[in-house]
Amino acid sequence: MKASQYAIAVALASVIATTLASPTGSVEKSDGKKEIGLRQEQESPREDKKKNKYFNEPGTTHQLGHYDARYFHGVVSDKERTDTQLHMIRAYLDFFRSKRLDTWLAHGTLLGWWWNGRRLPWDWDMDTQVSEATLQYLGEKHNHTKHEYTSDDGKTKREYILDINPWLWERERGDGMNIIDARWVDTRNGLFIDITGLSEIHPDTAPGVWRCKNNHKYETLELYPMRETVFEGVAAKVPYSYDKILIDEYTEKALILTRWEGHIWDAETKVWIKTQAQIEAEAEEARIREEIKKEEQRKKGGK
């Protein structure tokens, strides 16, 4: 009796394991029901889906979610982050241009471009998109390549790594753990640019509809042909209907309201300026962080 029960349990476990391990890219997910069913299966306590995650961050908080765990040495200051992001996106765009690869600005980075051709100062994320074809090409030719960068004035030297998620063949959201297809990481502090690929998931039933793994949808005619522009002082591309894409994602308010996240748009200089309240709040935050650090050191010293 007992032996047969064990046999059944083992058989069941192996069936589930093989289901989880097999690619879900081919699974038809035309309706929401199947998708929900699939996710429930994956959320069973037997399997920790986190271990499927390729890119890892030191934490999930607002602070820690924006570093690559492999290169993380501690939260950087606001100033260092700004400086890192500026050179990082320049290096990224220059690399893609030099290799004649298509990439374009997306999400918050696109919104920042729309306002003044620069990053939004409160945005910890940098986002770009590529087509599936470009993504595969990157995976074949440039995965895990390191890129030396020297700024135009020669004062800043950096090194970046282009890391492609091996889950790139899976073009559906799947368990949601690998929705980021690639990363351009600053090896000094682990800050990165998220690169997501767009695929035409159903070329037969829904031609001309492109989707990233996080289920943002775009139509061919609103993406292509791309427009050549300038972002942070270097050549960049944005989708054809940039306004429509921004409104679909963020609503019209994002192109109208001039107060966001403790910043206010200065109509004269055309830059986002931190409000006094935000400056004070950040100073307070920094003070608390400093105190916690001291406290920890004192404890260590005491031991």
């Binding site: 298509d102 087509s131 074809a133 061919t220 292509y224 054809y240």
Partner: peptide
């Protein structure tokens, strides 16, 4: 649209073929 399509073909080589299959190829 036509001028942008033209410019795009000269700046990249991995523009996905599918992207050009509809009215972009017309352009």
């Amino acid at each position: 649209r036509m001028l942008l399509s033209l410019a795009a073909t000269s700046t990249s080589h991995t523009t996905p073929p599918n992207a050009l299959s509809h009215s972009d190829s017309k352009a």
